[in-house]
């Protein structure tokens, strides 16, 4: 859910669109900022919409686990950066039918809603903290939905190969350190398909604390997708493994699906 400021963002997007359509094999001379923008596009904006079953395994240091299974629906709106998310929890049984919806706005705070089936209660959620954990996992909201390219200063550290793939290693440091819990991060971005292969987060003492890895990347409907991902907190030993199953792009999701009504009453076909 990349939030892009219109003045710069739209320009960037048109540029991106041109680059993406004209040359799938990218130029080597791409700037760090462009590479990050493209990677964001590939990771968080692929297709017009998307549906996937997501299985998350939260592992403690001792190997104890919590399982979360959910269905994720996403739709990009025509306005640049605008997105809609719908999350339906299917497992464990005691949270089945819980739903969570996000309206991602590029210019202002996101809107979030939550439905608690046990109380049949819908609540708006005001949360302006993107650092906070996504459903208790090692992923933060930002890790799941993206971070504005303009919020960081990006520099190309080196060109390298990772597991046989040519990559750029890009260092991104936040312009406003107060808003984040990292002092900088390093991203390994695939030069050919812009898939984020690996990301390292360094804490305020410049010590490594989180590592993201794309463990399995494949093409789904011609879109490169990391279908297995892991975020590991190397400091506390916690780890979250995510598997995307039954991924479908461009299904033609209706706008009306992403409404407060759907929270408590999601059409069954979307959660099968």
């Amino acid at each position: 859910m990349l939030e892009v400021k219109p003045e710069k963002g739209i320009l960037l997007f048109s540029l991106l669109a041109v680059v993406l359509t004209v040359s799938p094999a990218p130029a080597q001379s791409v700037s760090a900022e462009e590479a990050v923008a493209k990677a964001q596009q590939a990771q968080f904006y692929a297709g017009n919409d998307m549906k996937a079953k997501v299985r998350m395994r939260l592992l403690s240091k001792e190997g104890q686990q919590r399982i979360r299974e959910l269905v994720m629906l996403r739709k990009n709106l025509p306005q640049a950066g605008e997105q809609r998310f719908f999350i339906y929890f299917s497992n464990p049984a005691d949270v089945r039918d819980m739903t969570f919806m996000v309206w991602k706005h590029p210019q202002r705070d996101d809107e979030r809603w939550l439905f608690l089936p046990a109380l049949h209660m819908v609540r708006r959620i005001a949360a302006d903290d993107k650092r906070s954990s996504f459903v208790g996992s090692d992923f933060s909201y930002e890790d799941v939905s993206g971070r504005e390219v303009e919020e960081d200063t990006h520099t190309l550290v080196r060109e390298d190969t990772l597991s046989g793939r040519p990559v750029w290693v890009i260092r991104s440091a936040p312009k406003d350190e107060r808003s984040v819990d990292f002092s900088y991060k390093l991203a390994w971005i695939d030069k050919e398909n812009f898939v984020l292969r690996r990301e390292e987060f360094y804490d305020k003492r410049n010590e490594l604390f989180k590592v993201f890895t794309a463990d399995e990347v494949k093409q789904v409907q011609a879109l490169w997708t990391a279908v297995r991902r892991t975020m590991e907190n190397v400091q506390n030993g916690h780890r979250t493994e995510v598997v995307f199953l039954e991924i479908q792009y461009n299904l033609g999701l209706e706008d009306s699906l992403f409404s407060e009504r759907s929270l408590s009453n999601l059409p069954a076909r979307w959660i099968r």
Partner: peptide, 10 residues
């Protein structure tokens, strides 16, 4: 259980 998941999000 649902409170605990909500707390996990908050």
């Amino acid at each position: 259980a649902q409170y605990l998941l909500l707390l996990n999000m908050g």
